[in-house]
Computed example of a mutant assay.
Amino acid sequence: MSNNQLTAVSLFTGAGGMDVGFERAGIKVVFANELMKEAAQTYRANHPNSLMVNDDIHNIMDSLDQYEGADLVFGGPPCQGFSVAGKMDPDDDRSKLIFTFLDVVERVKPRAFVMENVKALGILEKWEPVRKKYLDRARALGYYCMPFILNATEFNVSQKRERVFFIGIKNGNDPFFEYNMTNLLEEQKKKAPTVRELLHSLGRAGTESNPNTCTAKITFATQPIMRKSPYAGMYFNGQGRPINVDDYANTLPASMGGNKTPFVDEDYLYGSATEDWVVAYHKGLMDGTITPEFEEAPTRLRRITVNEAIRIQTFPDDYVFCGNKGRIYTQIGNAVPCNMAEAVAKAVVEYLKEHSTEGEA
């Protein structure tokens, strides 16, 4: 397929964040699969030329044989079983889906595959047996595979989101694969803007360009867990934390929509305030001049909107999301940031150009 556009099969597609990145790298997605109904609807709304099958991946295995010979298989299987934020249960059925991903690779026999997952799967000693089993299986299928730990902030994403990308090359016999792929990924690096720089043009929440979408109240914790940084610790109830708009957001969770939604100081981000309200509050807690009480925070503190979350995940501003607000926040939080996926895709495409496996059985 070296003279034609590269083709790909997309698995565990979600709303299509990874697909946006791969398409930007010049890859045509010929098949996509997603279990969540609303995410599949979102995908179809934005990728009308790709086939999206909304079903359990185990139900559609046989239909994938027709895509044998596609150049790439990519996707991010559900990661809750391996996530530090989750229960880290290797027996969680979702943990087995990384091997289902390889079942598809076995059928499609692509020139390369890219599987995204949480950083823990790539580095934690606890998951070493799972990693070994995965890499051994990939090797048995004829792929040289390595895990690469990447931070989204280095790839033009204003979010501290570290992930592992397992990249496999068919019939790979390059003794310097890790070195060469690392260099290609380095070439794709681009410093991300701060959250302020990224969001400022949207304007205040409640305007036409930035509708208010999360009304979950922000209340003070009566027994705060203190840290040196105003943006660490737990000074507010719920798991939604303040975002330092002069830096990068922490990982946006799939559980956004209620009190797990991160928040910003509206007046500091979009108005004339010269200091984030959270900084002064934290200082008062630290020096004892403020005694925490259970009450609502000032209205200038508010949860991030859907449009702000879309930007932080580097989806296009006009990307259409389907479902209720909670489902939309979930789709955004579950996604691989588009810019990060684009960087990985471009590095893999370049590697395939430089180390062609065409014609090798």
Rank of each mutant, 00 (worst) to 15 (best):
D56L: 11
V344S: 02
T330G: 05
G257P: 06
C338P: 11
V9A: 01
V9E: 03
V336M: 03
C79H: 03
W277A: 09
R241A: 15
N212R: 15
A140W: 01
L184P: 10
G206N: 08
I243Q: 00
F113W: 02
A335V: 07
V157S: 03
N307W: 09
D56S: 12
E295I: 02
V114F: 00
N183A: 06
Y143T: 13
K353S: 00
M340C: 11
G326D: 04
T357G: 09
N4V: 00
C79M: 07
V278H: 10
R24L: 02
G326W: 14
I310Y: 09
E275K: 14
D265E: 05
I98R: 00
Q188M: 09
L301W: 12
T207L: 11
A221P: 06
W277R: 09
N307T: 07
Y270S: 01
T215I: 01
Y248Q: 02
F165Q: 00
L121I: 09
A85Q: 02
A341K: 05
D247N: 14
Q239S: 13
M181N: 04
L51D: 12
A335S: 13
K228I: 14
D317F: 02
P147Q: 03
L124Q: 12
G271L: 06
A232S: 14
G26Q: 00
N156C: 02
K119D: 03
S201H: 14
V157I: 07
V9H: 13
L185Q: 04
N49T: 15
G238I: 14
K37M: 03
F177Y: 15
S255Y: 01
A8D: 04
I310F: 08
V264N: 01
N54H: 10
I243V: 15
V130D: 02
E178K: 12
L198P: 08
A138D: 03
K191A: 08
A112C: 05
I290E: 12
P337T: 07
M256A: 02
